[in-house]
Design a binder for these strands. Structure first.
Lengths: 335, 335
DNA sequence: ACTGAAAATAAAAACGTTTTTATTTGGAGG
DNA sequence: CCTCCAAATAAAAACGTTTTTATTTTCAGT
């Protein structure tokens, strides 16, 4: 890397002090139009670009928010992240996406003053991380856990309600034997959905059969394999008549498995996902789902973070509503 | 944000100079085990985390590579980025994903010494950007354009060959009327594929009908709408018998459009995509495609970038091979 | 015990900015 | 033609590190 030209050389070129260069370039109005021009010209001539390290070290602000996650893969993350980027732009903030599951890396970035605040997931939700965050007064917004105290806010979906809606929809369609595919263990949204599902089943005095509870991990592949395996190894009369998948991708895996065994959705099984990802409508049959306002979540997360950064308020928690989208994979049980 | 504890306070706590703290904490072996322990203890007690701004300002290295893109949405980006992150980790480098289409933002980050080098796309490929990159000696690897000179390398797919393979496969299956859906205009991969397609068509003395060239933009939605519109407004005897889509998503859109009009792939049309994204196998019918080694591209991009960063060589260009994956959407023409 | 070199530590400089404080400049008012 | 004040600019300090240079400590070898 070649030596970069610094403010010092611009100063020399313009025959002026470095203080003046700084002020001129940052538009402080204490400096004469004439010198502003001289400085700007010199800067342009030398191709000067300010060293952000120097600048941020001094100003102690980065105009960057961190987005810390172990993965960006999948439509949920894609949509969320782009929404965050867009909203952050409205505040003249950049978004610094850091992908790692190494808590060390994330927190050294975080505590190393590389960002003014961050939006995070599960990865940083443990007692140790949270207490550091609180102790250091780091501004944080979580989007997959309800937390609010001190400098921490959160924006989550009403996933319990989502679980309820899914179960209710199936029950209204005559289903009584309903299977469930949880996502990753201890993930808030997944747990909450299961909770809502349980509640509704209980309210209708319907049993939950643990054989029908099959790991899906939010992934099409895992769901496909596990469901296929279940169907191949379980007598037909023990099967449920509907599946609530962990999310849309998981539902797609379920459907594929069923299809491959010569069975059909929704004739033999109903299936339902969560999120309403864009590609969903391109599948055949198109998938019934509970729509989550992902973009709104991204936007609100930024809004809350900005409030924290500007010290406008203490951490608080927002919950976003969800909505049933009926498509072709759920159907009245006709038996 | 609360005041962070600095090296100075650690020094005071450990009754030692800040130089010693720095050396102790960075494992320079000039310092006594006894003081190392004292310092480490003090640092732990005070919850010291080094300010990365200070550190990087001094060392002029960030151990970060930038990934500059206007979008991360879509399986291609997801896969590529995660591969990059993984490989960078092998070099103890972090990846700083910056999403923006604003050239200003990208280059101020870049020239502001925020990263040791970057992997970039189309966005920074224009004469002005390139000449700055060259002039400043910024280390760069592009993955969607063949460029190699000075401090710039590239790792691209052999997209011309991909286009050739696609066309050949269809022609071998008896197709002579073949439509094409380009991606975004002036995008390398798309252009190259078209070139390969043209070549093969010419070699077989087959005409390319411009009515069969339909904008797809690499997107399922755009492709779906445009194909649907084409089919609705064009007499059946003018139709091609096969489509080469811009990528897999585009192919999915094409198939959806055909399906919705009561026609079928591969009975009425063959269709072929590019990339071989993961979800492809879950569609019905599963999609024939030209597989690109996306993960390999990510890996190689990092490898090349590291060579540049360590001044091990001048910019060079790598081209990765591709491969036909026949699935259900292409079929021998039976007329 | 003393010398001298090696080892350990401390002090100071430096990285590139911004900001605070000090100095110079340019006029208006007498 | 001074004096003084405001305006403009320059100088210096500071941000938190690492690195270079200087100083102190340790302890062989006599």
């Amino acid at each position: 890397m070649k030596e970069r030209v610094t403010i010092r050389e611009v100063a020399r070129e313009a025959n002026v002090s470095i203080a003046t260069v700084s002020k001129a370039l940052n538009g402080l109005d204490v400096v004469t139009p004439k010198t502003i021009e001289r400085v700007t010209e010199a800067a342009k001539k030398l191709h000067y670009t300010p060293n952000l390290m120097g600048k941020q070290l001094k100003t102690k602000t980065t105009k960057m928010i961190g987005l810390y996650t172990h993965t960006i893969t999948g439509p949920y993350f894609n949509t969320l992240i782009e929404a965050i980027v867009e909203e952050a732009g409205n505040y003249q903030y950049g978004v610094n996406v850091l992908i790692s599951s190494d808590k060390q890396i994330l927190s050294s970035h975080l505590l190393g003053n590389m960002v003014d605040g961050f939006i995070g997931f599960e990865e940083l939700i443990d007692e140790e991380s949270l207490s550091t965050i609180r102790a250091e007064g780091v501004k944080a917004v979580f989007v997959d856990r309800k937390i609010n105290d001190g400098s921490i806010s959160s924006v989550v979906f009403d996933s319990q309600k989502a679980g309820r809606i899914a179960a209710q929809h199936l029950i209204e369609n005559g289903h009584t034997k309903i299977g469930f595919l949880p996502g990753h263990p201890n993930v808030y949204d997944s747990d909450e959905r299961y909770l809502g599902f349980q509640e509704v089943m209980a309210e209708h005095q319907l049993p939950i059969n643990l054989d029908w509870t099959i790991t899906g991990l939010f992934e099409e592949k895992e769901s496909y394999e596990n469901i296929k395996n279940y169907l191949l190894t379980t007598p037909r009369d023990k099967w449920p008549t509907a599946w609530i998948a962990g999310n849309d991708l998981s539902a797609i895996g379920v459907i594929k498995a069923i299809d491959e065994l010569g069975l059909s959705v929704p004739e033999d099984f109903s299936a339902i996902g969560f999120d309403d990802i864009e590609l969903l409508g391109y599948f055949k049959p198109s998938v019934t789902t509970i729509q989550n306002p992902i973009q709104e979540q991204g936007k609100q997360a930024v809004i809350e973070l900005m409030k924290l950064i500007n010290n406008q308020k203490k951490g608080e928690s927002k919950t976003l509503d969800c909505q049933l989208v009926v498509r072709e994979t759920t159907k009245r049980l006709s038996r």
